[in-house]
Design a protein around this nucleic acid. Structure first.
Lengths: 340, 340
DNA sequence: GCAGAAGATGTGAGCGCTAACAAGAGAGTA
DNA sequence: TACTCTCTTGTTAGCGCTCACATCTTCTGC
C-alpha cells in the first residue's frame, strides 16, 4: 500500500504543483480573488480540469466556520402544504448558493423539534427554517442555540423568532363571507386538529365573520386534515337539519365531505355549498370543482429564506421579522346562492 | 476584542481542561470508546454539560473523511410519489444516523442531474440517492464520481448503478387484466409523458395483456400527469365510440378524466370503468372512489437506503443490486362488469 | 514478589483548506 | 536613480478533531 498507489482524490497542493504555483494561488483562483494574473488563473484552471480536482468543502468549512448549508425541520412532507413549502425553501436556498439539510418529523412535539434542532446544530448549519404548524413545537423554538438564526414558518407569533405565515384568519374570513354573501343564514365549519395553529386561525376568522354579521355560530366539527375525517364530518352534517353552507378547513377534508354528501344524496352546490382551504392541484377537478382559499406556499418558502439570509448577514444584531402572505379566494362550482 | 471576550463556542480542549483530562480522553468519551474509566467518563460528561459543548462535526468529518450525510436528488417533490419516496428515504437515513441533503430539480434533464450530483459530491456526501424517473436522467448517472456510491430510484436499469423500483409493468398488467376480467372488450390507456420510464412500463404492461388476450390495442392517449391533462384526455374519450374501459397512468389524471366524464354525462362505472395508478390518499374519496394500483413509496425509500448503506460499507467491492417492489391492486367503485 | 498483559490516559501529527502577513516584481513619481 | 505604491505570489499558522503511538497504571498468575 504505497501512498502513490492509493490514488486519493487530488487536493489543492496537487493542483498547485501541477500548475507550478503555490496552493494559496489555487485557493485565490477558486475564490475569485481579483489579484491573480489572467495567465496564472488559466494555468490553474487547466490543472484543476486535468486532475479532476474538486474542492473539499469540509476543510473549507472548518476554517471559514460556514457550511453554506441551511437546515429545514418539517412535519410530514407527504402532505401537499408542507411539501410545497419545503420545495419553495429548497429552490430559494439553492438559488442563494446554499445546501439544504432536511429533517422530516413524523409527529411534531416539543422533544422531536428540539432533537431535530440539536441535530442540525451539530451539523453546523448556518441557519434553520422550522415548518412547525403545531402549537407544541413552539417551546422547542424558545431554547434554540442562540448562535444560529432561525425562521419559523406557520409558527407561533410569540417568542423572539422570525415568522413567515399565510394569513389564516383572513382566509377564513374570505371563505365565510363568501358563503354569507350568497345568502346562507349561517356557515358550519369543519376545523383541523386542535393543536394546529392554522386550524385555530381558521376558526377565529370564521367565528369573527359570523359574529360581526350577527349570525348564530353552529357547533364546531373537526377532523385531522385527512379525507376520511372530512368524510365522517360530512356524514354527520348530511343528517344535521338546516345545514346549507360549510367551510372545511382544508381541501382534502372537503373532498371527503363531498363524498359523504354524494353518498347521502345531498347535492352540491344545489342544496349545500362548500368551501375548502389550500387549493391543492386536485381541487379544480373535484366533483364539483371546489371553491377554496389558495395559499401560496412557494411564496412562503421564498420569504422564509429571504428573512433567514438577512438574519445571517446581520449577525448578532438581527431583529425579528414577520411576513404575512395574503390568501386568495378561488371561486369554483361548489358554492351557489341559497335557495329555500 | 480580547480573545476572552469573544465567547466562542467551547471546543474539545475546553472540556478537557475543565474535566482535568486530555482532549483525547474527551474524544474517547464522545465516541464510546470502551477503555475509559467510569469515573473519568462521568467527569467528562459533566464538563460537556456545564459548558454546553457540542462536537464540531465538520472537524470530525475532515479527518474521518465521512460526513454522515447522504444526498438526495429528486424531481418536483410537490408530487405525491416523489414526496413520499423522499420522505421514506429521509426516515430511513435518519434512523441509520445519517443526515439528508436535498436537491429538488424543477425539470430533470441530463445537465440538471449532473449539476446536482456535482453539487453533492462537492459537499462530500457519503452516498447519493437519485430519484430520477425520466429517461434523460440516465446519462448523468453514468459519469457520476466513482468514489461515491449511488442508488437510483425508478431509474433506468441500464448502466452499472443499483436500482430500486416498483414493478410498473406488473402494475399495468394488474389494471388491464382486471378490466378484461370484467368483460370489457378492450382497454384504452392514458399514458404519462413519453420521457418517463414509469410511463413506458405502464404502456408495456397494458399492451402485453391486450396482446396476450388477442384484443385490439386502441390508440394511445397521453398526458403530463396533471389532472388537467387527464381531463382533456377524458373529453376525447367521452366522444370516442366504443370506449368502456380506461386505464389511466396515474390517479391525478384519472381524477381529471372522471371530471370530464361527469361533465359529459358518461356514468362511471355504469357506462365506463376506469382504473388509476399510485393510490394517492385522495383516491378513495373520488366520485366514485377510484380503483387503482398502489405503489408502496415508503418501501422504495427504505430499500434504497438499505442498498446504499450496504454499498457504502462494501467500499470499492460493491456490486450493483436491484430491488423491485411489487405493486398492489386496490378495488374500489370506479370499475364494474361490462354491460352491453 | 515480579514479569507480562491488559487497561487507562497522554502526546504529536496531520486532515485540506483559508487568513494574515511577508516578500518580490513592476509601474509611476520626484 | 531612488522611492513609494500597487499588483502578484508565497509562507506560515492554525480551524477542531481523530489516529497512531507512547506512556503510565493496574491487574493477573505463578
Amino acid at each position: 500500500m504505497s501512498p502513490s498507489l492509493e490514488r486519493r482524490p487530488p487536493v489543492m497542493a496537487d493542483v498547485a504543483t501541477r500548475a507550478g504555483v503555490s496552493h494559496q494561488t489555487v485557493s485565490r483562483v477558486l475564490n475569485d480573488h481579483p489579484n491573480v494574473r489572467a495567465e496564472t488563473r488559466a494555468r490553474v484552471l487547466e490543472a484543476i480540469d486535468e486532475l479532476g480536482y474538486r474542492r473539499n468543502m469540509v476543510a473549507r468549512a472548518l476554517v471559514t466556520r460556514h457550511t453554506r448549508t441551511l437546515g429545514v425541520v418539517s412535519f410530514d412532507t407527504t402532505l401537499y402544504g408542507p411539501a410545497s413549502t419545503v420545495y419553495g425553501i429548497e429552490q430559494a436556498a439553492r438559488a442563494a448558493g446554499y445546501f439544504v439539510s432536511m429533517v422530516s418529523l413524523k409527529t411534531i412535539d416539543t422533544a422531536g423539534v428540539r432533537d431535530a434542532l440539536g441535530y442540525l446544530a451539530e451539523q453546523a448549519v448556518d441557519g434553520i427554517v422550522v415548518v412547525a404548524p403545531q402549537r407544541s413545537a413552539a417551546p422547542a423554538l424558545a431554547d434554540v442555540p442562540t448562535d444560529i438564526p432561525v425562521v419559523a414558518v406557520e409558527g407561533s407569533h410569540s417568542g423572539d423568532v422570525s415568522v413567515v405565515s399565510v394569513d389564516q384568519v383572513e382566509g377564513a374570513r374570505l371563505a365565510t363571507r363568501h358563503l354569507l354573501d350568497l345568502g346562507h343564514e349561517t356557515v358550519w365549519h369543519v376545523a383541523g386538529p386542535s393543536d394546529w395553529l392554522e386550524a385555530d386561525g381558521r376558526i377565529e376568522g370564521w367565528r369573527e365573520v359570523l359574529a360581526d354579521a350577527g349570525r348564530p355560530v353552529p357547533e364546531l366539527l373537526s377532523g385531522d386534515w385527512s379525507p376520511r375525517s372530512g368524510y365522517e364530518a360530512g356524514l354527520r352534517l348530511a343528517v344535521t337539519p338546516g345545514v346549507t353552507a360549510v367551510f372545511v378547513a382544508n381541501d382534502q377534508m372537503a373532498l371527503g365531505a363531498l363524498r359523504a354528501f354524494a353518498e347521502r344524496g345531498v347535492r352540491v352546490p344545489e342544496r349545500l355549498s362548500i368551501v375548502g382551504f389550500d387549493d391543492i392541484p386536485e381541487s379544480e377537478f373535484f366533483t364539483p370543482p371546489l371553491t377554496t382559499i389558495r395559499q401560496d406556499f412557494g411564496a412562503v418558502g421564498k420569504h422564509s429564506i429571504e428573512i433567514l439570509l438577512r438574519q445571517m448577514e446581520a449577525g448578532a444584531e438581527w431583529s425579528h421579522e414577520r411576513h404575512v402572505v395574503p390568501p386568495r379566494f378561488v371561486a369554483r362550482a361548489s358554492t351557489a346562492p341559497f335557495r329555500a
